[in-house]
Amino acid sequence: MSRISSLEMQLANVKSLLRTMCDAVHAGLQTLVQHFEHPNTNRLIKIVVLDSEIDNLERAIDASILQVFATQQPLGYELRLAYACAKIAHHVERIGDAVESLARQLVNGDVPEQKEIFLEMLLDTKNLFERSYTAMFDGDLSLIQEIHILDDKVDLKQRELNLIAKNILKKANKKSIEKALKIISMSSKLEKIADLCCNWAEQIDFAENGMARRTLRKRKYRLVFIDNIGGMIASLVASFLYKNVKDIVELSVITTQSIKSNNILNFTNLLVDYEITPQIFPIARITTVNWNNCLMLIKLGKFELSEEESDIVPNKTVQIHWPEIMIDPIDIENDPKKFKEFANVLTRRTNQLAQIIARTQEQN
């Protein structure tokens, strides 16, 4: 009977297989970049061949990790590393699938007219892959500290391409529909690769530091409040919520109308009874707010966004309507009774929202 390798040797074998797998996927990404710069469909066919090799490597990694658990019963760092490698292999295999799918789309058609945007998006995605790769195999964890911020650049490019696709769809003919669907499909795959690279980075951080001492800076989700009376009501709502969610999400305030000069500090004495400190949020227009990782858009009052404004809001953003939160800031500033009625409704709404956000955080 052959002798069982040591834990150190088995884990080294797992990482070696994983590096080979990552090298194959990286070669596919590099080929896509070359195709966008200098189209050559012969190169793309090699990516399809690489995909079966990547699938075989994932199965070999799974078998090797199972052997580690069965024969070594690892603890501490070794246990975390083995678990992380299994997860990373799955993420990398999905990246490989997305790369192959992109190659198939490009083989069957021309490079999209939005070549420059796609190339920038692809290069940013490749950068994310290379950062996770170097952190994994060379131990330079500094490269993944800001990885979620870099992922935001890819998300912005995807939204830009989706808006272009929406405008193309307005032509409503078969050719324009095919163009738009291709843009949406390809940009979604690149965004998916970027997200999987972030998942990879999180597993590296987990293996090195464990759950209690993880150091990777995770992105905060964003909540945006919008009113149609200058932004002051939206600022008050955000102030009520701020204390309970400031460590979980970022808050933004926007308005559909002219930004008014009301000072939220005028409400300090009225807010003290609710143990609320007025927060000064920059009031923006819907076209200038940062929509990165926007979890929710909360509309305050009885109004609807125009079609152009609705197109700006990302599809992933959940839109919530609070029609009863509708009052003139001057009225509640000068009438404590009206402010109390407003604050009671607002407290109930924001407490419910804070609970939803907390549950979402627990699930993540």
Results as ranks from 00 to 15, higher is better:
residue 3 R to C: 06
residue 15 K to Q: 12
residue 19 R to S: 12
residue 22 C to H: 12
residue 25 V to L: 01
residue 28 G to W: 02
residue 34 Q to T: 01
residue 42 N to L: 06
residue 43 R to L: 13
residue 44 L to D: 07
residue 45 I to D: 13
residue 46 K to A: 13
residue 47 I to Q: 10
residue 49 V to N: 09
residue 51 D to P: 06
residue 71 T to R: 11
residue 82 A to R: 02
residue 98 A to H: 13
residue 114 Q to G: 07
residue 120 E to C: 11
residue 129 F to V: 10
residue 130 E to F: 00
residue 144 I to Q: 03
residue 153 K to R: 08
residue 187 S to L: 07
residue 193 I to Y: 00
residue 195 D to I: 07
residue 197 C to I: 01
residue 201 A to G: 03
residue 207 A to E: 00
residue 210 G to R: 06
residue 219 R to L: 00
residue 228 N to S: 15
residue 236 L to I: 15
residue 245 V to F: 12
residue 250 E to L: 06
residue 253 V to Y: 08
residue 253 V to G: 12
residue 257 Q to S: 15
residue 261 S to N: 15
residue 262 N to A: 11
residue 263 N to S: 13
residue 269 N to T: 12
residue 270 L to H: 10
residue 274 Y to L: 09
residue 274 Y to D: 11
residue 289 V to I: 15
residue 290 N to E: 13
residue 291 W to N: 10
residue 291 W to A: 06
residue 298 I to W: 00
residue 303 F to N: 10
residue 319 Q to W: 00
residue 319 Q to F: 04
residue 328 D to A: 11
residue 328 D to H: 13
residue 337 K to L: 13
residue 338 K to G: 09
residue 343 A to Q: 06
residue 349 R to L: 15
residue 349 R to S: 06
residue 356 I to Q: 11
residue 356 I to K: 07
residue 358 A to G: 05
residue 362 E to D: 09
